[in-house]
Design a protein around this nucleic acid. Structure first.
Length: 476
RNA sequence: GGGGCGGUAGCUCAGCCGGUCAGAGCAUCGGACUCAUAAUCCGUGGGUCGUGGGUUCAAGUCCCACCCGCCCUACCA
């Protein structure tokens, strides 16, 4: 399974919205690895965007410097969010990227032609609009008149429709799929795939054979999914691998579900198999905007509340469809409720009882009496339910499935009340509970890598370590 | 302008092809328990399921119109 996130442009530091996509990809990667499936999880940065040039100018620093600094911040999320990506590609640094882009450009040569173009352009979006101001950046548009290279996107309309309708290219959620189909059915016009080089001196990838132009940044950035694969990796992950999954935000579906497949079709390359589109995060009811500063700095939030808490919020609280509003209050409430009072407290009470009644020795007898039915069922069915939910890219449902183990375990404790049981029965109850905690640790692993490891450590071995709080409360 | 998605208890939301679908969690209130991170467990609260029509024996659940929020897309006067 080849899982990719989009590669954000690096005109600013990463915000929580980026973290959402990375964490979703990470959960998928860890989940499938856990099932023994070969996985390549890849992310990176789009260094070649004109927006990076503008940001550098605004800040008065060299583009290289700004790009390197911000790209490092993105890569740093690996630590602060416990991400397990196998590759981090930077379009301006990866040796294979530029040659790869040039190769693809030449491969689609037959579908390229030059044309004079005039229109209103938003540098922020790197896109033309009918009139201003730009809806995304609320900035005035520039009148651009230049000669560009165009791609015969119009030729691929039917092929794209077949691809998506036939399910060879799966787009989730279905609403997004319909959106894409509607867009294509409305008719595809050829698109400009190059920009005048002098607008970004020295930045971007020159068009092969035409140094006056640089490759349109989207053409450049999309190629990363393929150019990041060096040597045998290309055959392994792009040719032989059936499950190639692109994760992205709703704002860039068109590029991934229309331009990118068409580009590959033209170049005669294999196509991606699945596209999952997430919606946006808002912060305190307001749009998170890089250009307006970083009101939701990803790293700062993780540092303040911990990767486990933030990951859990992103996975447990963000719906599959619809924007979600992030507030510190919600983060803290969810973490305390589920992690501290739920998982942490459960493990703590179980381990404490093992110490109090068994002197720390893990009982080996586990009897599945009727009282344990609900708990045993939860443990046994969790893997299947998690898998099913993740196949649907429904992270919230997957997290909820894991949660049922905690819920059932607590109910079980109340039902049997180990502290009142005869030693023999109690031993069986505690064995069942320790077993449940181990199952919980296993199921939690893709969601909370370090937290799950702490749970596992707390309930592993024949003699359990002294109990200590695994997930301290965040609120007072 | 075209297309799409939402509008369900105070809050966040589940409700697939119509008939125990009027629900869950949190919050509130009451109770239980003491193994545990002032935790946990049990019970409780009555919301015209955006508005108005329609189809049907039966509609949050289908159809039409409208209102509100949002998204994608396009701008012909």
């Amino acid at each position: 399974m080849y899982i990719t996130t989009t590669i954000p442009y690096v005109n600013a530091r990463p915000h929580l919205g980026h973290a959402l996509e990375f964490v979703q990809g990470d959960v998928l990667a860890r989940h499938y690895r856990g099932r023994g499936e070969p996985v390549r999880f890849q992310t990176g940065t789009d260094d070649n965007s004109l927006k990076n040039v503008l940001a550098a100018e605004a800040e008065g620093v060299p583009v290289r410097e700004l790009v390197d600094r911000n790209a490092a911040a993105f890569e740093g999320l690996r630590e602060s969010y416990d991400l397990s990506f196998d590759a981090f590609i930077r379009t301006s640094r990866h040796p294979g990227h530029r040659p790869g882009v040039e190769r693809i450009w030449r491969a689609i040569d037959g579908d390229l032609y030059q044309r004079h173009y005039e229109g209103l352009y938003c540098v922020g979006c790197e896109q033309f609009y009918g009139e201003g101001p730009c809806p995304e950046h609320e900035a005035p548009l520039q009148h651009i008149s230049e000669r560009n290279w165009f791609f015969r996107l119009s030729r691929y309309q039917d092929a794209l429709l077949d691809l998506i309708r036939g399910g060879r290219l799966r787009i989730e959620p279905a609403a997004r799929r319909n959106e894409v189909l509607a867009f294509i059915e409305a008719g595809l016009a050829d698109i400009s795939v190059s920009r005048a080089a002098d607008r970004a001196p020295g930045w971007g990838i020159p068009v092969p054979g035409d140094p006056s132009q640089v490759v349109y940044v989207w053409w450049d950035a999309l190629a990363n999914y393929v150019t990041a694969l060096d040597g045998g990796d290309y055959d392994r992950w792009w040719v032989a691998e059936p499950r190639k999954i692109h994760l992205m935000g709703k704002g860039v579906i068109r590029f991934h579900a229309v331009y990118w497949p068409a580009m590959l079709l033209a170049a005669g390359l294999p196509l991606p198999a699945e596209i999952f589109v997430h919606d946006y995060l808002t912060a305190g009811g307001r749009k998170i905007s890089k250009s307006a500063g970083t009101p939701a700095d990803a790293e700062a939030i993780a540092r303040a509340y911990g990767a486990d808490a933030v990951r859990w919020w992103l996975l447990r609280e963000v719906p599959r469809v619809g924007d979600a509003d992030f507030t510190v209050e919600r983060l803290v409430a969810r973490a305390d409720e589920d992690l501290a009072n739920g998982v942490g407290n459960l493990v703590n009470r179980v381990v404490t009882m093992v110490h109090r009644f068994q002197d720390g020795a893990v009982p080996i007898v586990a009897v599945d009496g009727d009282a344990a039915r609900g708990l045993v069922d939860a443990c046994e069915s969790a893997p299947g339910r998690v898998h099913e939910a993740l196949e649907d890219f429904d992270f919230r449902r997957a997290a909820a499935a894991v949660w049922t183990i905690v819920e059932e375990a607590n109910k079980y404790v109340e039902r049997v009340q180990p502290w009142r049981q005869e030693p023999g029965d109690r031993e069986a109850s505690l064995a069942t509970l320790v077993h449940a905690c181990r199952a919980l640790a296993g199921q939690l692993a893709p969601f909370l890598p370090t937290g799950a490891a702490r749970v596992a450590a707390a309930v592993s071995g024949e003699r359990l370590p002294r109990p200590e709080p695994l997930f301290p409360r965040l609120a007072g």
